[in-house]
C-alpha cells in the first residue's frame, strides 16, 4: 500500500511547527500504524533527514504512551490505541494527517511527542488510597460485591493516554479524572478518602488548565479502554456533594 503522510514537525517546545509531507511506500497491510511510521522514519534517515519523533512503548495497547491524532481523531479510526491501528483500515493512496495531541496542558516536546505529566499531577492530588505497606488486613476481610468490583474495574481500565482530553473540543480531562475517582471511590477501601480525593483531583485538574466538560462525549468515543462518560456524571454528583459538605463544615478536604 502507498500513502501520503502530512506530519506535524516541531523542533522544540518553544518553536513553531509546520506540516511536512512524506510518501509512505510499499507498506504491508499487516503493518501497524506505528510500524508504518518506523518504515517512513528509516527512509527519512537513509535520506539524511531526522526521523519523526513520536511516543510509543509497549505497542500492545496498554501502556498509554502512544499519542497521535490521525486525521483529527486521537488514536485514529476505530477503538483502541494508535499502536493497535493497522494499515488495512486505510485505503491505498490515502492522505493521512498526523498531529500531536493538542491540549494546552500537554505541551509539545518535539514533533508528535507531548508532555503529559499533568495527568500525574492529578493523581498526586489524591488519586490513591493511603495504605501503608504491611498494614493491610487480610484481602478477604472485606467482601466486595462483584458488581461493585466489576464497575470499579471498568473505571480502573483507564490507560492514562490522555486521548479523552485530546478529543474533547474543550480539552477537558474529566473522563480521566472521573475514571480514577470512580475506580477508587467505588471500593470500600477507597471510601475514607473519597471526598478529599474527589475535590482535590478536580481542583488540580482546574488549576492545570484543562477545559470544562460540555458533555460532548467525544472522550468516550475515542477512549481505547472504553471508559464510560457515566463516570463523569458520578464525579459531578460527588464533587458537588463533597464541596457542599465542606462548605457547611461537615467534612474537610
Amino acid at each position: 500500500m502507498n500513502f501520503t503522510l502530512r506530519v506535524w514537525r516541531q523542533d522544540g517546545p518553544t518553536t513553531s511547527g509546520r506540516f511536512e509531507e512524506y510518501p509512505a511506500k510499499n507498506i504491508p497491510d499487516e503493518a501497524s500504524f506505528l510500524e508504518m511510521l518506523d518504515i517512513v522514519n528509516e527512509e527519512l534517515e537513509k535520506a539524511g533527514k531526522e526521523s519523526v519523533q513520536f511516543d510509543h512503548d509497549c505497542r500492545e495497547g496498554i501502556c498509554g504512551m502512544c499519542s497521535l491524532t490521525i486525521n483529527g481523531v486521537p488514536h485514529g479510526p476505530g477503538r483502541g490505541t494508535t499502536c493497535q491501528l493497522y494499515m488495512r483500515k486505510f485505503q491505498d493512496g490515502d492522505v493521512i494527517t498526523i498531529e500531536p495531541f493538542r491540549v494546552g496542558a500537554f505541551p509539545i516536546i518535539r514533533d508528535l511527542a507531548v508532555n503529559r505529566t499533568a495527568l500525574d499531577k492529578v493523581i498526586q492530588a489524591g488519586g490513591f488510597i493511603t495504605a501503608r505497606t504491611g498494614s493491610a488486613p487480610d484481602a478477604n476481610s472485606v467482601p466486595i460485591p462483584k458488581v461493585i468490583a466489576d464497575e470499579s474495574m471498568d473505571a480502573a481500565a483507564c490507560i492514562g493516554c490522555g486521548a479523552c482530553a485530546a478529543a474533547c473540543p474543550n480539552s477537558s480531562a474529566m473522563l480521566f479524572v472521573s475514571a480514577k475517582a470512580a475506580h477508587l471511590g467505588l471500593l470500600p477501601q477507597g471510601k475514607p478518602e473519597n471526598e478529599r480525593r474527589t475535590v482535590r483531583m478536580v481542583r488540580t485538574m482546574d488549576e492545570i488548565g484543562f477545559g470544562n466538560c460540555s458533555n460532548y462525549y467525544a472522550c468516550e468515543a475515542v477512549c481505547p479502554a472504553g471508559i464510560s462518560a457515566s463516570f463523569i456524571a458520578r464525579l459531578n454528583r460527588q464533587y458537588t456533594s463533597a464541596a457542599a459538605r465542606e462548605a457547611v463544615g461537615a467534612t474537610t478536604i
Binding site: R6, G72, R102, V103, G104, S171, G209, F210, Y216, A218
Partner: peptide, 15 residues
C-alpha cells in the same frame, strides 16, 4: 484557552 492550537484537520468525532 485550554486548546491554544487547534487541529488542522477537524473531526466532530461523536459530538
Amino acid at each position: 484557552t485550554a486548546r491554544p492550537q487547534k487541529y488542522a484537520v477537524g473531526d466532530p468525532i461523536k459530538t
